[in-house]
Design a protein around this nucleic acid. Structure first.
Lengths: 233, 233
DNA sequence: CGGTACGTTGAGTCATATCAACCATAGTGG
DNA sequence: CCACTATGGTTGATATGACTCAACGTACCG
């Protein structure tokens, strides 16, 4: 019997990690497998850039990727992060618009590129896939709207507490309870949407109040309920 | 030959107004027509409320509807408006989650309610419909992300200028050039995400600078380029 | 005619940004 | 091996945008 190493690779990666691909037929999965290209990116590299045309979307196998928009003065606003199992860039493919975000690799990543027509065919021909992708988009939309409300109505301190908890929930902790995602103060400020100095001040405030432990970029959350109360939801 | 007034009604309304329904087969359209319920809402009435379960989504025939989220202290953040041809509430239907926004009628509206299973069947069985709905969602997502960046990086004055231009573009003007959508100062503040008093101050600043004309809630945009420059995009 | 909701204005306060100086660390090249 | 530079982190002082509070004006409505 002939082996299909590529197919097997995809089968063992994408399928298991994302409900999206759960509903693909063997045929569709093979189509994806044969047309995708796996690429490795080092920390700091840009996968695609705001304003550029996309030739497909990406499925993240490993690593962490930062997705952000640039404001008019160059200050970046981080929209979200993507990690193993997440897909990125599909918005622009579906809308057939230039990318509205830039994606930069935070931790060395392995990423599969899947061409536009494959995605559109899947949405068109596989109802379950379409529903799952819609769910994903709607989830992102809900989160975006929630965060908009937060940004407008909460203080920087409250948002920082919220973000720390969110990062903990999304990326988890090492055995020593340090947050797995490691960000510069500037990156934290670009999530919260504030000045770097403000982040520094509130982080050390949290430290002094015994809510977190700090060692450079290593952040350990000590008092989850305390932070939750500050974030107030 | 037998007449189908209900079908005809839907045919003359929804189909023409939204690309979404352009791709429905005659059969699908009839299914929608037979299962939808048209309701009339007066100014001030709530169509659905944040946190409630939805039994379907809505298609706006006429009127203007305000879609907002409530912050923890009750202050509302307006997410967007819906007008003739827009569909609302589909996010919650697709995600199968409680509504994450409240919708309140700003101007007397005629709205069609279409039950959940119809929407899901359309997404599942009609690829073109699925793609169009995805496009719509992705467009909203892109706008939400853009506005998030704005809120974080721009001043209230800049955002107000931007919102005024946006309201002009979305709802248009009367023959006398007054913006068609009429909002209280508080509602404006709930879009921009600021205090009512701030809106009042900047509106009169714009007036004094000859950018707009004010007569109560009637706003006339006199200097579009000037506002654009303030909004700076 | 009084009530209710909306609009306006001014004064004071506060959260956060900005600016500036300085420290820590890690390459890098002479 | 040591300045040298770059990058990120920290702290304090100051500036300012925007909120809050409070008073008052305005207009419509029963």
């Amino acid at each position: 019997m002939v082996q299909f190493p590529i197919l097997h690779d995809c089968d063992s990666c994408v399928t298991k990690k994302h409900p999206l691909f759960r509903y693909l037929t063997a045929e569709e999965l093979e189509d994806v497998s044969l047309n995708r290209e796996t690429e490795t990116y080092k920390r700091g590299s840009i996968i695609y850039q705001e304003g550029h045309r996309m030739k497909g979307f990406y499925c993240v196998q490993s690593g962490i990727i930062k997705i952000y928009k640039s404001g008019f003065d160059g200050k970046e606003q981080i929209i979200r992060f993507a990690k193993s199992g997440d897909i990125i860039g599909y918005r622009s493919v579906v809308s057939n618009e230039p990318a509205c975000t830039t994606t930069e690799v935070l931790e060395d990543s392995k990423v599969c590129h899947i061409p536009t027509h494959i995605l559109l065919n899947l949405v068109r021909n596989n109802g379950d896939f379409a529903v799952e992708l819609m769910k994903l988009t709607c989830k992102e939309l809900g989160e975006a709207n929630s965060y908009l409300t937060d940004v407008v109505q909460k203080t920087v301190k409250e948002r920082l507490a919220e973000i720390l908890l969110h990062l903990q929930a999304e990326f988890g902790e090492d055995p020593d309870r340090v947050l797995k995602i490691s960000l510069t103060r500037e990156e934290l400020s670009n999530i919260v949407g504030t000045a770097t100095e403000s982040i520094i001040r509130f982080l050390s405030e949290f430290k002094n109040e015994g809510l977190i432990e700090l060692k450079g970029r290593k952040i350990k959350i000590l008092d989850r309920p305390g932070l939750k109360q500050i974030a107030n939801n």
